[in-house]
Design a protein around this nucleic acid. Structure first.
Length: 378
DNA sequence: CTCTATGATTCTAG
DNA sequence: CTAGAATCATAGAG
């Protein structure tokens, strides 16, 4: 089935002969007649242009992402899209992070456009080719303009189906890129030491009710240089993690209890009249909200008890030093009865925000593997 | 590399 | 909407 030059020549010759045949005009008119009769059936299948909603969606998205928009305003279009996506710019430092994103996006855009161009070109070539063929054939058989149109639209449909695939995969690529670069989890930065300190201070001084009000959150956010929702996240994480393993946070709690204590004694009553002011500052805030204070006041003061219990009712300034001592080496430790005794129980006694604290906290052998690690148990 | 700490997101329930 | 819980994905220490 090969087409050789010779066969082509032959065909041309035959065609020419046919065109010159004396019966040709008659034949042609007959064909036209027949065509006229059957022509109606063609038209019905002509109208179907619902403008695929799917395609529109894809187009809109590509446009929104700056992939499909104005071409090489490109950088700025993408930048604008990225900026818009970041929701009004939360932090000023994300321009650097986004540059990578933008370059990748530009890459996608480039590929998309070059592919699109290729498709368009191919489509046009094919269309003209078919048109030429039809024109050629129109000399030997009747070809209505309608038919040509129909042919063209069929071709265009086929090609736009391919285009749709291109758009779809481009959209996918953009989505992946977005999730890769714009997902905050992926560019997580730890808060500054100072910010963490401020947050912890608030948390442990309001341990009985660590739910900062909106105002408090705003203030904390301002103090820490983070957003309010970050503050919320932080408290959410802190509460759940603290509750989950109080033992692990014991030391931290003490540190901050001391800190607030110190600051209060030094600065006097900086925050008077807050809901839990004096108590919170002191230490009380941490544990003794309801009746729990008693709980561990009543505790036999075994040894170190150093921190919490003692600091509750001792002159704080004096305590600080000793507290530091006791905590330093690993102090509060391990198997002291103290550790075991107070922590779980008083928590529950509070009944405050964390009722179902696991009974085992420090030294629990039954804890999940790894949750309590060596230093607490021993 | 592994392992833990941690900020963020997602899901569910109220 | 919020809090809690689970989970993700990274930062950072070892």
């Amino acid at each position: 089935m090969t087409i050789t030059d010779q066969s082509l020549d032959e065909a041309q010759a035959k065609k020419h002969a046919l065109n010159c045949h004396r019966m040709k005009p008659a034949l042609f008119s007959v064909l036209c007649e027949i065509k006229e009769k059957t022509g109606l059936s063609i038209r019905s299948s002509q109208e179907e242009e619902p403008v695929d909603p799917q395609l529109m969606r894809l187009d809109n998205m590509l446009l929104a992402e700056g992939v499909a928009g104005p071409e090489k305003g490109g950088g700025s279009a993408a930048a604008a899209a990225a900026a818009a996506a970041s929701g009004g710019g939360v932090s000023p430092d994300n321009s650097i992070e986004h540059s990578d994103y933008r370059s990748k996006l530009a890459q996608i855009r480039h590929i998309y456009h070059s592919e699109l161009e290729k498709y368009e070109q191919a489509c046009n070539e094919f269309t003209t080719h078919v048109m030429n063929l039809l024109r050629e054939q129109s000399r030997t058989r009747p070809v209505a303009p309608k038919e040509m149109e129909r042919m063209v639209s069929i071709i265009h449909r086929k090609f736009s189906a391919i285009q749709m695939q291109l758009k779809q995969s481009t959209c996918e690529a953009v989505m992946i890129l977005r999730s890769r670069f714009l997902d905050a989890r992926r560019k997580r930065r730890n808060f500054s030491k100072q910010a963490t300190e401020v947050l912890n201070e608030y948390f442990y001084s309001h341990l009985s009710n660590p739910y900062p009000s909106e105002e408090a959150k705003e203030e904390l956010a301002k103090k820490c240089g983070i957003t309010v929702s970050q503050v919320s996240n932080w408290f959410g994480n802190k509460r759940i993690r603290y509750k989950k393993n109080i033992g692990k946070f014991q030391e931290e709690a003490n540190i901050y209890a001391v800190k607030t204590a110190v600051s209060v004694t030094q600065g006097g009553h900086s925050r008077t009249s807050s809901p839990t002011p004096p108590s919170s500052a002191g230490s009380g805030g941490s544990f003794n909200l309801s009746g729990s204070g008693d709980m561990f006041l009543g505790m036999p003061g075994l040894n170190g008890d150093s921190y919490s219990a003692s600091q509750v009712r001792c002159p704080i300034s004096l305590q600080v030093e000793s507290l530091r001592h006791s905590m330093g080496p690993g102090g509060y430790g391990d198997n002291l009865g103290g550790g075991q005794m107070y922590s779980p129980r008083e928590m529950r006694a509070n009944g405050s925000w964390q009722e179902a604290v696991t009974p085992s906290s420090v030294t629990s052998p039954t804890e999940g593997p790894g949750s309590v690690h060596s230093d607490t148990s021993n």
